[in-house]
C-alpha cells in the first residue's frame, strides 16, 4: 500500500516538474516573440523617418542624388525583408546608406544648421541605438530560450512539444566588416 502511495506521489511530482519545465519554455518563447516585436517597432519607425529626411536633404543638397537614391532603395529593400536573417542584412545596408548620407551632409553648412534636419538626425541616431538595444535584448532572450531547449533535461520536453531554437538577429553593416583603416 505504502509503495503504491510513494509511487503515486513520485508520479505526481514528476508530472508537476514536467509542467514547470514546459511552462518555463513557453515563457521564454513568448519573451523571444515580444523582444522581436520590439525590434519591429523600431525598424518601422526608422522606415517612417527616412522619407522626411530625404525631403529635407533634397532641399539643400539636391545634387547628392546617388546617395539619396541609395538610401531610398535600401529602405524599400529593408521594408520587404522577411525573417531575422534577411532583415539583418537589409537593415545593415540601410544603416550603411544612412551613415553615408550623414557623412555627405557634413559638407553642407546650411543643411547642418537646419533645425528640422538636426531633429531628424537625433531621431534617426536614437532609433539606430534603439534598434541596437532591442537587438541586444532580443538576442539575450533567444540565448536564454535556446539554452533551455538544448540543456538536459528540458531538451527532452522541448523535443516532445516541438520547441524549435530561435534565430539570432545580427545586423551586418557592409563597411563595418572591413578592417577599419587607422589614420594618424
Amino acid at each position: 500500500m505504502t509503495y503504491v502511495l510513494i509511487f503515486l506521489v513520485a508520479i505526481a511530482v514528476l508530472i508537476f516538474w514536467v509542467f514547470g519545465l514546459y511552462n518555463g519554455l513557453v515563457r521564454l518563447r513568448n519573451a523571444v516573440k515580444n523582444a522581436w516585436s520590439q525590434i519591429d517597432v523600431q525598424l518601422k519607425r526608422r522606415h517612417d523617418l527616412i522619407p522626411n529626411l530625404v525631403e529635407t536633404v533634397k532641399g539643400y543638397a539636391a545634387h547628392e542624388k546617388e546617395t539619396l537614391a541609395r538610401v531610398i532603395s535600401a529602405r524599400n529593400f529593408a521594408m520587404n525583408a522577411a525573417g531575422p536573417a534577411e532583415a539583418g542584412r537589409a537593415e545593415g545596408a540601410l544603416s550603411g546608406a544612412l551613415k553615408s548620407l550623414f557623412a555627405v551632409s557634413e559638407a553642407y553648412p546650411d543643411l547642418k544648421a537646419n533645425q528640422n534636419f538636426l531633429a531628424l538626425q537625433e531621431e534617426l541616431t536614437s532609433t539606430e541605438n534603439k534598434i541596437a538595444f532591442s537587438r541586444q535584448a532580443y538576442n539575450d532572450a533567444v540565448m536564454r530560450y535556446n539554452n533551455m531547449t538544448e540543456v538536459v533535461p528540458s531538451n527532452i520536453i522541448a523535443g516532445m512539444f516541438n520547441f524549435k531554437a530561435s534565430e539570432f538577429f545580427e545586423i551586418v553593416i557592409p563597411e563595418e566588416k572591413d578592417v577599419p583603416k587607422v589614420s594618424f
Binding site: 520590439q38 523600431q42 537625433e122 531621431e123 536614437s126 541605438n129 534603439k130 538595444f133
Partner: peptide, 9 residues
C-alpha cells in the same frame, strides 16, 4: 530618447 533606449535595453 536616452530613457527610451534604456527602457528597451
Amino acid at each position: 530618447n536616452i530613457v527610451e533606449e534604456m527602457k528597451i535595453a
